[in-house]
Design a protein around this nucleic acid. Structure first.
Lengths: 143, 143
DNA sequence: CCGTATCCTGAATGATACTG
DNA sequence: CAGTATCATTCAGGATACGG
């Protein structure tokens, strides 16, 4: 009787290939797929590169990352911390002082993310041109 | 009277720096922020690197990218096309044959994305370890 | 200063059925 | 084969108020 659930299929496939359960984002059940979702999160994409500048406080991040709410900032940082990408340092002072910094693992990810951010900043103009051309063609086709 | 809306502030800031409205993903109103959201989309992150292998048909992509629905596949491809990242080639045959391939612009992005995917696949094990350690610490703190 | 707790809404997406 | 159309659902995330 063949396995039907994705995770089981994934493991069987990996074994068939003889390999050590190689991670594969294209496999729905592979844990790396879920991690990709976290990594690609809207705020993660801004927070991680921001921390490359060095340790930052909650307020620093709020000011730097326009539009982020306190809720989403804390939530995202907590998730990143629980995945070993960010370290939270609470100085246990009054008034509170808390710093966030990248772990070694986090730094290597942050570098990859920064490349993506840079690509976007560098090519936004080309994309905007492409959009206009696309719209032109659209209008021609619709008459 | 000072400008209060984000886009206006963004433009003014850019002019103050004397620069040619440099793109900045940290600015809420900068168009690059929206592009980043598109680029970081769950399915974009899988489709773009997939197309690095060469032109692919709808069915090919459906089979390769486990879990994607026909709806989301088409929708994402259309968006990518309208942003100049993917080219859609309809051979106007019966039965239908349509291919998708990267534009030059798209290819440069796909390379950056593939690095992110690779990072995830390469480091998922470390992340899972970190998760366990985090949970341990959590349990200790909560008693 | 740095959060947590709640409520609430719309936008994203999966399921399903149909079409050229 | 390669879509489109429609409906139902969920849940991410914004607003707001409160707390150590």
């Amino acid at each position: 009787m063949p396995a039907t659930n994705p995770l089981q299929r994934f493991k069987e496939d990996a074994e068939k290939r003889g390999g050590p359960l190689a991670a594969n984002v294209y496999a729905e059940a592979c844990p790396s797929r879920a991690l990709l979702a976290l990594v690609a999160d809207k705020w993660t994409l801004l927070i991680m590169p921001a921390l490359r500048r060095g340790p930052m406080r909650n307020g620093d991040l709020m000011r730097l990352i326009e539009g982020v709410s306190q809720k989403m900032l804390t939530q995202t940082l907590r998730t990143l911390e629980s995945n070993g990408l960010v370290r939270r340092i609470d100085y246990l002072e009054v008034p509170p002082r808390v710093e966030y910094e990248l772990t070694d693992l986090g730094r290597s990810l942050a570098d990859a993310i920064r490349k993506l951010d840079s690509w976007v900043e560098a090519h936004i103009a080309e994309v905007e041109e492409a959009r206009e051309e696309f719209e032109k063609r659209e209008r021609i086709n619709n008459r």
